[in-house]
Write a protein that binds this DNA or RNA. Sequence first.
RNA 1: GGCGGCGUAGCCAAGCGGUUAAGGCGACGGUCUGCAAAAUCGUUAUUCCGGGGUUCGAAUCCCCGCGCCGCCUCCA
Length: 495
Amino acid sequence: MEIKFQNTLTRKKELFKPLSPPKVTMYACGVTAYDESHLGHARAAVVFDVLFRFLRYVGFEVVYVRNYTDIDDKIIKRAHEVGVSPKELAERYIKSYDEDMRALKVLKPTYEPRATEHIPQIIALIERLIEKGFAYVVDGDVYFSVEKFPEYGKLSGRNLEELKAGARIAVSDKKRHPLDFALWKVEKPGEPSWESPWGRGRPGWHIECSAMAMHYLGETIDIHGGGLDLIFPHHENEIAQSEAATGKPFVRYWLHNGMVTVGREKMSKSLGNFVTIKQMLSRHHPEALRLFLLSMHYRSPLDYTEKVVGDHEKALEGFYETLFLIEKLEATEEKAPEGQKKNLAKIQELVENFENNFLSALADDLNTAKAIAALFTLEKGLNNLLKLCARKASRDHVILAQKGKSLAVKLAGELLGILEESPESFIENKRAKGLSNRALNRDEVEKLIKEREEARKAKDFEKADAIRDDLAKKGIILRDTPWGTFWKVEYEPSS
RNA sequence: GGCGGCGUAGCCAAGCGGUUAAGGCGACGGUCUGCAAAAUCGUUAUUCCGGGGUUCGAAUCCCCGCGCCGCCUCCA
């Protein structure tokens, strides 16, 4: 299968050819552990998680690294505010992020290195840069000299002149050029520090990614991912440091995800318009969240509204209900009726095309929106099939339905991380949650449903309808199927 | 100001030069149902922000304009 990615570096969609197949090396920028993570962080994590899953699925041996920044200005500042050590603070939020990732079913990367555990590698890289004349020491600080690296700006499409003109960064008389950036920062009182050839201090932000990427993945890596907002200066600086040190291309494919927005404005800590992952998880199923995050092509901005997340919640529920009904199917006939042959052939074709449609969507620059559309098309086919079986299911029907179901579950599960629960328990959990949200008693609800079924059998429709209306007022929705009455708690958008 | 991106039905959104412009949510009508719900079938963009141009052919490429967003400072 041909895999293509839009490469930020070349601004083109390119055929993906790993440096040494079947191995693929991949690095994604994780988080700075100084606060709870929000939906924007979740998007980045989920997008690159799907990329990781996809590459593995098609047969690559993927080594995936996602770092934690556990030492930096913001951590130190926050730690002082809260009154704990920076190490403790970072520890706390790394743990919290891990919880979020687990809940969101983001697979564990191969390595999750922390900056503070790679000080020797960082120092070695800085020494290499100093030796080669790309970095200089001033009073215990070490800076990278951007003017020594002629290609500086190639990722973000800028040049030094432009950058200098628009520079908003504080002028420092220590730096030779305003855009020179710190590789190593001299120790300040009350801050964590490590021994180095330039005295005690701590690493700058950008250097950790270069050092750790090279340490785990080699001097040239296949894929590097991160948010669009990291292109400049973070990724630009990573390129400069790494390529200056090694003389080799650092990254072959740069992939960047778009921002999550709120009212079309970037979700961010500073604007205060963020929702934490934990808040989202308290009101939505993790798979609904994944579905929402993957409903849009990863490069585009994704606007967050509760309504749209709710739409995906409903869509997910519909899917599980289809799967649930398929599980209930039992063949009572040997062959499907002649008259259904044409319809069945159509569904058969749909099922057979699904895998290819789904995978080729992902192979085309990870088009998850299109892959999800393929999934819905399959669902529609399966619902059609269920309809055909409503009266009499044959072996033909059941085999086809189960084939469709297992394909959907396999691909959606392994690649998108959705539809991984048993339909039965998904529906039960939903019910349990809905019941408790509405403070309803399950036995009572079930008793009423039974009573209504009795009434229906006795053709006492007045009573049956009264019960249904009563339940509806409480938020219980009934559905009479050939297999009995199915019920669920009405979806309630949270405020 | 510089660089990059976006603008497709009521809403979300795919589309990457060539048969009838995916899909989801919503709305309307038919089927199913005792009636509903769900499902299903059909309808809901003769047209892709506006204006030019290239081409046999453009939502897709180019130019101009309008609107929105991101980056240029820490940020997924």
